[in-house]
Computed example of a mutant assay.
Amino acid sequence: MTIQPAKLSDPAVRAFVHAVNAHDREGFMSLLSPGATMADDGSDRDLAEWIDQEIFSSRGHMDVDNESNGGRTLLARYSNDTWGEMRTRWTFTVEEDGRISRFETGQA
Rank of each mutant, 00 (worst) to 15 (best):
S30D: 15
N69I: 00
P34A: 10
A19W: 04
A22M: 12
D63P: 07
A108T: 01
A36Q: 03
D44K: 00
A36W: 06
D40A: 13
G71F: 03
A19V: 05
R102Q: 12
A39N: 06
T82C: 02
I100T: 11
T37S: 14
E49A: 09
L74N: 12
T88C: 13
R77M: 03
A39P: 13
D41Y: 04
T82Q: 12
W90L: 13
G98N: 10
S43D: 15
F92H: 05
H61Y: 04
P11H: 11
E95A: 05
A22V: 11
E95R: 01
T73H: 13
N69W: 00
M38G: 12
Q4R: 06
H61T: 05
E96R: 10
Q4D: 05
S9K: 11
A36E: 06
L75W: 07
F92P: 02
H18Y: 00
N66L: 14
G27Q: 09
F56P: 05
D24E: 06
D81S: 02
G27H: 08
L47K: 00
L47V: 07
W90V: 08
I51Y: 10
E95S: 00
E54N: 14
A19E: 01
P34S: 04
T93C: 01
T88L: 12
R77T: 09
T37R: 15
V13Q: 15
S30Q: 15
F103A: 12
M38E: 10
